[in-house]
Design a protein around this nucleic acid. Structure first.
Lengths: 335, 335
DNA sequence: ATGAAAGCGCTAACAT
DNA sequence: ATGTTAGCGCTTTCAT
């Protein structure tokens, strides 16, 4: 079952390998007749190009690294779907790594990807600044980096795909107010994640605008897990602060919060409405279904892949920021 | 920022590339002194081997394809974690594809992987027989295939990683009976999935053993989604068959079922207990938490990767079946 | 112990 | 329009 190479085709047709190569590449400098013969033979003998040889020739690894913070929610899977959708047809392979929300693991992952000679890395960071030195070094070495969702702090000029956290969270909070909620608690992610700050800012702005602000309503979590969401509610209850709704930084935190509420026999949305930010399928499989700001995850992945291709094509292309629209989807948890 | 090659090292140290190569490979035929100089220089100049060149030389793509039915639940992500854990350190890249429970998409995915010249494919099938011809052809061509979780029918001799569905489901059903349930409904997956049949058989055996069998208690679903789980409960209710518990084929179906129950104000586990098979994090984030048979997903991925390496090392190694232990984890949904 | 040379599969100058 | 040659980075015979 030996693989057929252009050499075999050359021998078979008594032509040189260059002619075979040219015919296969649709080069104009090849007789129409000859091209046809080559194509037929290729088909007949089952020729398939050797990507490795191509890559060696072109000096690329045709491998893109991806770093995501977690793979428990479908968030990353959806974005990956978009990335793959763009990159697979072009012959790119992926090395997907997950950091488990740990900057140190993220660092190791970046190192691993470097060892893989990746042509570029697409990243959703787990800490705003911790690995900046690595990002900076890699970019200096000519490895294109593209960020999505969670991005590094502004000291780094990078290509990125994001939604406007500030605006979207403002909209969501305003929506909660319109539905009659007045004591809106916020489960904010760790402040080492820029988006957590942005979303909290949107939240604060609206509460201030409606004169409903109260620092006691904000719980900053230490991490991003389901348990952190539960803890946040425990804390709210301990603080004895009144609240009739919760806006959580992410689906995971929101669902943890919902569980804590249900355990305390607090009705959703009767007693407390819950809303979140991200928009994974998770929000539709919990009961009651969760109102949330849905990010266009697949499209974000596609955009990130496109930005990567842009950078690969032209190393010195200027960094671009793609701003995607998020939409508020109302579900049972706030109705 | 040009990459350093062994050529550069050779020039730098006035040695031949062969000596450099040997030194780097710890070949005995190289002066200790020389080796040290080479290693130092490599370190100093920042030499990194070019994997593509290695691959071309060895005739491998160092790429493994993975086909999974879905990426919405963390099931596949966990298995992938195990696969990556074994394969990444060895320099293997992955091309991960998802079939969306559609045999036709699975077929396309296999084709794509073939185009990638993968060294092997690890698969969780979405249909017991539909793509048998492709599996067969690929294996005949010398591409190692390893299956996990859902496997093709017995007409194919393949390496695989599985749990004993029949036994595990028996245990689960017996457990439900021990907790006092007598009318146990079963939401069975499509019969184009071997495991659905196995688990249903385990279920039937125990019900028969305790004289509790009733064909009306079984709902065979058309698919594997959350919605199919909901529908199943609707059907049970329409049939007006009494039931005090549900054993679902998967977490997804179980959670869909739970939602339907809650919508009808049926208490879990008060009125109806719910249990499932799979063991993803999903079972711990729903309310109430879901009792389930937990498969050791990460370990399954590792085992699948090991089987793959075995086949890659020796194309004609006999096919092996790794049987993993699943454990029953009791949670609130049945207590 | 070291070097020279061939070759993995393919493309692209450079002939002709 | 087709062929010859070199070379991508590395390993590996075969010499020395």
């Amino acid at each position: 079952m030996k693989r057929i190479t252009i050499k075999d085709l050359a021998k078979f047709l008594s032509l040189s390998t260059s002619t075979i190569s040219r015919a296969l590449l649709d080069d104009k400098n090849v007789n129409l007749e000859t091209r046809k013969r080559v194509l037929d033979a290729a088909d007949q003998l089952g020729y398939k190009p050797n990507l490795t040889a191509l890559n060696l020739k072109s000096g690329q690894s045709k491998t893109i690294g991806v770093v995501v913070p977690e793979m428990i929610t479908p968030f990353s899977a959806k974005v990956l779907e978009g990335i793959q959708h763009v990159l697979y047809p072009l012959g790119y392979r992926l090395v997907i790594t997950q950091s488990d929300e740990n900057p140190l693991i993220e660092r190791k992952n970046l190192q691993l990807l470097e060892d893989f000679n990746v042509d570029g890395i697409i990243i959703n960071v787990c800490h705003e600044t911790y690995n900046n030195d690595v990002y900076r070094r890699m970019m200096a070495q000519g490895t294109p980096l593209v960020f999505f969702d969670r991005i590094p702090d502004k000291s780094l000029d990078v290509s990125k795909v994001v939604v406007d956290d500030y605006i979207s969270s403002s909209l969501l909070v305003e929506y909660l107010i319109k539905t009659g909620r007045k004591r809106i608690a916020h489960i904010m992610g760790p402040s080492t994640i820029r988006n957590a700050i942005e979303r909290a800012n949107g939240y604060k702005r609206i509460l201030t605008k409606y004169n409903l602000a109260d620092e006691n309503l904000i719980i900053k979590t230490e991490g991003m897990s389901f348990e952190h969401g539960k803890d946040a509610v425990q804390q709210l209850l301990q603080r004895k602060v009144e609240f009739d709704s919760i806006f959580a930084f992410s689906d995971t935190l929101a669902i943890g919060a919902m569980n804590a509420l249900l355990e305390h026999n607090i009705k959703i949305p009767g007693d407390v409405a819950v809303a979140s930010f991200s928009g994974t399928e998770l929000s539709t499989i919990v009961y009651p279904q969760l109102t949330s700001v849905q990010q266009p995850l697949v499209a974000m992945g596609e955009a990130a892949a496109e930005l990567m291709l842009e950078k690969i094509k032209n190393r010195s292309a200027p960094c671009r920021t793609v701003l995607m629209d998020a939409v508020l989807v109302q579900r049972a948890s706030t109705l």
